[in-house]
Computed example of a mutant assay.
Amino acid sequence: MRIGELAAAAGVSVRALRYYEEQGLLASRRSAGGHRHYPESAADQVWLIQQFYAAGLSSKAILAIMPCIETGEVTPEALALLVAERDRIDRQVEGLASARDRLDTIITTAGTPSCTGHPYRPAG
């Protein structure tokens, strides 16, 4: 499929696809006229790249992980990177859950006329 078709299928801009290609995250073959052509599986690959970016992974980290996904083989170095990224995401999730819990407390006590304390401050 051509770049515009992939952009539409994956829900991203053509510019994003060019960037992914510049970073080595996505590969295309060129036609005689210089047009980029991608395999049908590229839309799934773009979705995965976007998920990794959304999780805060860098292009460098994604580039190191992609071969493991493509081949199913994980080197010790890639495994260490995957574990470190998972642990970083776990810390983010814990922080977000804590923020959500504080918001829930504020929301719950917001309508209470006798609310005299500061429910958004942790006890201590």
Rank of each mutant, 00 (worst) to 15 (best):
S28L: 02
S98F: 11
R102E: 10
V93K: 14
Q45G: 00
T105G: 14
A55E: 01
G56I: 06
R121Y: 15
I106S: 12
A99P: 13
R88S: 09
G34N: 03
A80C: 01
W47Q: 07
G95S: 10
D104M: 15
E85M: 09
P122D: 11
A16K: 07
G72L: 09
A9R: 07
R30P: 03
L17Y: 05
A9G: 03
H37C: 07
D101L: 08
D104L: 08
T109D: 11
Y20H: 00
P76A: 01
L82R: 03
A55D: 01
E85Q: 05
L48W: 06
Y53K: 13
Q50S: 00
R29P: 00
I62C: 03
I107K: 06
G95R: 15
A61G: 03
A43C: 01
S28Q: 02
I3D: 00
S114W: 08
P76Y: 08
V93N: 13
R121K: 15
H35E: 11
S114Y: 08
G95K: 15
A99L: 14
G24W: 14
T105I: 12
E85V: 03
G24S: 08
V14E: 02
Q92N: 11
T105M: 14
D44M: 01
R102H: 13
R18L: 06
A61N: 04
G24T: 12
G111H: 12
R121Q: 13
V83G: 07
P122H: 08
V74F: 07
H37V: 08
V74Q: 12
